[in-house]
């Protein structure tokens, strides 16, 4: 069985789904912003909202909405990839990076190697610390220049765009540092523990 070095039928593939270097395998592009939630949309008042950093069971720092809004803000223009196979290019977000949160909390370095994100409504997801640092992730409060709509996770959601979008937990309220990686809501029911769209890590074992 030998193959010719160059396939005669080879030609540039048409790419209706956009540039291949921006669309991970098995994904297709959308222009709208589909809503996928594991539960009802909470409508948390800004007065009652806070965001907490925790080391295991111990709180490290907490910000009210006003305090959070006063932290240095960062904007990110990124592509996002949902495990249900849609991808959306060039989305614009504003929020506070995890680096900034650590600095504001007076933490020279994160206390543990893994995190669990906890949300209104009980949703959780796990992300290794290194995937949250160096500007790779933020707690986002604005999308396309406007306050983040409740159905998309407002007042604030995690944004970790290089992982499948279930990791970008909506209605985020605390970031807990944990010593051992643990599965969150979807990760404990068949979804991949890490979720890299470029390696198509959709399900456990991928």
């Amino acid at each position: 069985m030998s193959e010719p070095p160059i396939s005669r039928g080879f030609r540039a593939r048409k790419r209706p789904d956009g540039p291949a270097n921006r669309v991970p395998p098995g994904q297709h592009l959308v222009n709208d912003f589909p809503v996928l939630s594991a539960g009802p949309t909470p409508h948390t008042s800004l007065e009652g909202w806070s965001f907490t950093l925790e080391d295991g069971p111990s709180p490290l720092a907490e910000w009210t909405w006003a305090q959070f809004a006063a932290l240095p803000q960062t904007t990110l223009k990124v592509d996002i990839h949902c495990v249900t196979t849609w991808s959306k290019l060039d989305t614009n977000w504003q929020g506070v990076t995890i680096d900034t949160l650590l600095e504001a909390a007076g933490l020279g370095e994160p206390p543990e190697l893994f995190t669990m994100i906890h949300c209104d409504g009980g949703y959780t997801t796990n992300v290794p610390v290194e995937d949250l640092l160096d500007g790779k992730a933020m707690v986002a409060t604005h999308f396309e220049g406007r306050p983040l709509a409740p159905e998309h996770g407002g007042p604030a959601r995690l944004l970790v765009p290089h992982l499948y979008f279930w990791k970008s937990a909506k209605w985020a309220r605390s970031l807990q540092f944990i010593a051992q990686d643990e599965p969150g809501f979807w990760e404990s029911l068949g979804y991949h523990i890490y979720g890299d769209p470029w390696r198509e890590q959709r399900y456990a074992g991928d």
């Binding site: 589909p34 809503v35 996928l36 939630s37 594991a38 539960g39 009802p40 495990v83 249900t84 009980g122 279930w166 979807w186 029911l189 068949g190 979804y191």
Partner: peptide, 19 residues
């Protein structure tokens, strides 16, 4: 009440919305 969309079924109590 069923949530979860294309990711799966998240069935919640019709009264208290717990999973």
């Amino acid at each position: 009440r069923a949530y979860g969309g294309a990711m799966g079924v998240v069935l919640r109590c019709v009264h208290c919305e717990a999973v």
